[in-house]
Amino acid sequence: TTTKEDLQRLLQLLLRISTVVEEAEGRRIENRAMVRQISIMREQMFRGYYLLDAFRC
């Protein structure tokens, strides 16, 4: 795949993950494992957005 295609795919994945993270943040989750999983997802999401911005620049 080309860099452009990879960036497009990255954006699609980030949109999907951010939807789930946002949905999770709007719910009262007390399960520690789930909270941890959301935290990992959020971290990976920010990493992805950082990379996306870096490559776009």
């Binding site: 860099t3 990255l10 994945l13 789930v20 989750i29 789930m34 990379l51 490559f55």
Partner: peptide, 30 residues
């Protein structure tokens, strides 16, 4: 670049594992 492909792969795997998580998530109240 290699870094970009690696990031895509990591997120692809994360999204693939997300299905069950989303179903479970929906059972929680807002």
């Amino acid at each position: 670049s290699k870094e970009l492909k690696q990031a895509v792969l990591v997120l692809e795997n994360m999204v693939a594992d997300m299905e069950d998580f989303v179903i479970f998530l929906m059972s929680y109240p807002r």
